[in-house]
Amino acid sequence: MVKIEPFEIEQWMDRLEGTPGVLNISETCAASVSHDDLVRFCEDKNAPSPLSLSKKLTYGAIRGSEALRQRVTALLDRASDAEPLPAENVIITQGAIAANFLLFYTLVGPGDHVICVYPTYQQLYSVSESLGAEVSLWKLKAENGYVPDVGELAGLVRANTKMIVINNPNNPTGSTIPKAVLEEIVAFAKQRGIIVFSDEVYSPLYHSLPAGQQAPPSVLTLGYEKTVATGSMSKAFALAGIRIGWIASRDRAIIDAVAAARDYTTISVSQLDDQVASYALSEPVVRPLLERNTALARSNLALLSAFVEKHASVCSWVKPTAGTTALVQFRKNGVPVDDPSFVLDLLDKTKVLFMPASPCFGRGVDFKGSVRLGYVCETGVLVEGLERLGRYIEEHF
């Protein structure tokens, strides 16, 4: 029997999100939009409806519709002079979580070694371990802005290293790996024939980069065939409910292997979901949709930043530059709180929910006292949640 570690973040979310009256500032998607919202966003008022309800609901295109795969490649090729990625090099999946699992299931097994950034979404290292691979955690440091130190790779790599896993933007820290660092990672891997897998589920929501720093490109544009990227409509595009994600690679052999493995699982995605995603990524819709989500992220991050500054005696962080999540440490009398107990007590007394970092993102004592917040929710939810959190701090710290 395969030994699978409990997926802590998902189990915590499942247990607590349904709490009556909860103010959820743990949600990691940009505030969700509706089908009608997408139509209102569309800059071409003559564009056809997102859904063709007269179309027969067969399995549809097994790897995803041509229209959707072409729009995913346009997203991945953004602001790049690299050779365009063919639509045939994309597979549409049930969200990025299915994309990530399928990729590991296809490419990693006993005898393999994987290097994975840490902290990150637990799936990105636990699935490889469950499949029998050895995993080395590439620890990100707060003092380096949670940007990977490429100089450490030489001490982590082995003769059997199959894959380097990165997450850009990072969950839970909201940090960005700049283009120059991505190029160093790719160059290191290319010299050794190692696959570079980049979970880009929060891309392209690079909303608060330092002045003069450009948004990094997809890893697929950096001139190395053995690169793979996953993404979805859930986070940056505020459409988690349609369950659409993707796997893309410059290496057609990887794509064909993934497609063969998927024959044993989901076969294809819903035609209706595919149609909505294709509409959302169409040129008249995707620009205003991303503008809305970027503006929401910037304004909400300013609110959260003001809160952390106001409560600097008990709060500390590395301010996010991208994505929708932040990692904030809370201290009481100068000592990091017990974050699981803190989260549960806060929920009980205020109905405010965020996630404890030490069980959900850490091993051992890593990230003690820290919580992950999802701040790109509806602004009113964030404002009310921070007000309640502030009162809690005044009463209990």
Rank of each mutant, 00 (worst) to 15 (best):
M1S: 10
K3W: 00
I4H: 00
P6C: 01
E8C: 09
M13F: 14
G18I: 00
G21K: 01
V22Q: 13
V22A: 15
L23S: 09
S26Y: 06
T28L: 11
C29H: 12
A30N: 10
A30K: 05
A31D: 13
S34M: 09
H35V: 10
H35Y: 15
E43Q: 15
N46C: 07
L51G: 11
K56F: 13
G60M: 01
S65Y: 00
E66N: 11
R69H: 06
R69V: 05
R71E: 11
L76N: 03
A82W: 00
A82T: 03
E83P: 11
V90D: 03
T93D: 02
G95A: 00
A96W: 09
T106E: 09
T106V: 10
P110Q: 02
D112G: 00
V114Y: 01
V117E: 12
Y118P: 02
Y118N: 15
Q123W: 03
Q123G: 10
S130I: 03
G132K: 00
A133Q: 04
E152A: 15
L153N: 03
G155Q: 04
A159Q: 11
K162G: 06
V165W: 01
T173D: 04
S175R: 05
S175H: 07
I177T: 13
P178T: 05
P178K: 03
E183P: 05
E184H: 08
I185E: 03
A189D: 08
K190C: 07
R192K: 14
G193F: 02
V196W: 02
E200K: 05
V201E: 15
S203L: 01
Y206H: 12
H207G: 09
L209E: 07
L220V: 04
L222H: 01
T227E: 07
T227Y: 05
T227W: 01
G231Y: 10
M233Y: 01
F237V: 06
A240C: 12
A248H: 01
D251N: 12
I254N: 02
I254Q: 01
A257I: 00
I267D: 12
V269H: 02
L272C: 09
D274M: 00
V276C: 07
V276E: 03
A277H: 06
L281H: 07
S282G: 10
L290W: 09
S299I: 08
A302E: 15
S305C: 07
S305E: 12
F307G: 03
V308H: 02
E309A: 15
K310F: 06
H311G: 03
H311V: 01
V314H: 03
C315W: 08
V318E: 12
T321R: 06
A322H: 02
F330L: 08
R331M: 09
R331D: 14
D338H: 11
F342Y: 10
L346D: 08
T350D: 07
M355Y: 12
S358H: 07
P359Y: 05
F361D: 04
G362A: 08
R363G: 14
V365Q: 15
S370G: 09
R372V: 13
Y375P: 04
G380A: 15
L386I: 00
L389H: 04
R391W: 06
Y392L: 04
H396D: 11
H396Q: 14
